[in-house]
Design a protein around this nucleic acid. Structure first.
Lengths: 189, 189
DNA sequence: TGGCTTTGTCAACGCCTGTTGACAAGCGTC
DNA sequence: GACGCTTGTCAACAGGCGTTGACAAAGCCA
């Protein structure tokens, strides 16, 4: 998306472009691996401009995290179909789902000392909390934690497999069909 | 464990001490966050010595990973008790379990570009593979992936909660009791 | 047109990193 | 004791990082 010639003067558009680039970068690489100059290059802008618009790298990271849709989008739709729906997304639409970009960012940087606290706070406020409320019923907190753990765990498992589960289409369907009732069981109580 | 005065001349012991310190560091912090000087300070040695003994930081990381007991220790014991045993360890003995230190290292650094490939290879060779073999039966690969995902996911979930599940003792027991049959179900087929 | 603010670029700073080669001291052997 | 190998230390390097302040140019307003 880089164009020759000077960048048009449009602060709002530039700011948005930076934020989007940051979101993509942080969803694909860890906090430490993402450099201000990388993001700047994506946008076609000087790295100094990011500092001016967003303050520090931490602030940019938080802004990127906040700009993602929260876990509540995961909870939209029929509650009785949650298991099948989420299992399908996990197995067949790994990161295409824009709704999970926030989770991708958190998973990427959970290991980084500099980002851990920000990630934990965001996760509690925008993922664990809403999920727990939405589930409701007895032991909601326990079930929410198990649910969140399983969902994130499958993402990690795929990541550890090098970006895919390394199984064929038929096995993917089997995985989905095994996963769905487990997730649904945690929803139903 | 730092002593005043010069370090006694004992290459083997020093090498071992470096390896142990590296293992602990990498299990607690990401590849990027762990510095050669940090490890050196833990051992009470100069950072240059690590380079001489282990080559590069990558080599040290791999050596630390290799020195951990592999996933097979997770599979020791009665297969029919796997669910209860592992669920208990996950909930009540998070990282005390030395047997999971290798997994801790992998989880810490899975997000880092520089460590990702090493982690993926190690994980496949020493965790996914053995688990898949051990499970056996129909859809072993699918069940192994789900199992591994769930186990790791609970570690991530705890990490995202700031190092604990933030639930009381009674809820911990409930979590264990819900987790156990799910894991066991994946073992039994 | 002349000034003023906004928007973006550029060069540089200080800091931290992994790694290297020269140097010092311990220790066994002749 | 003198040699030589081993073990550990020290200082320095090159490279990358986030951030800063000075500067250039664009657009707006009088």
């Amino acid at each position: 998306m880089l164009c020759p010639g000077p960048r048009p003067r449009n602060a709002a558009a530039t700011r948005t472009a930076i934020l989007e680039a940051a979101r993509d970068r942080f969803a694909a690489e860890s906090y430490d691996d993402v450099g201000m100059r990388d993001i700047a290059r994506d946008v076609g802008v000087d790295a100094a401009l990011i500092s001016r618009y967003f303050g520090s790298k931490d602030d940019l990271f938080l802004a990127a995290l906040d700009s993602c849709s929260d876990g509540s989008t995961l909870m939209s739709g029929d509650k009785s179909e949650f298991g099948r729906r989420v299992a399908h997304e996990i197995v067949f639409e790994p990161k295409k789902a824009e709704k999970l970009k926030g989770m991708a960012i958190m998973l990427r940087s959970i290991g980084s000392n500099k980002a851990a606290e920000m990630v934990q706070n965001t996760c509690t406020a925008r993922f664990f909390g809403p999920l727990e409320e939405w589930i409701s019923g007895p032991d909601a907190r326990v079930r929410a934690r198990l649910l969140a753990g399983f969902i994130m765990g499958m993402s990690v498992s795929r990541e550890l497999g090098g970006g895919s589960f390394n199984i064929d289409q038929a096995d993917c369907e089997k995985m989905r069909d095994r996963l769905a009732p487990i997730l649904q069981g945690l929803i139903d109580g």
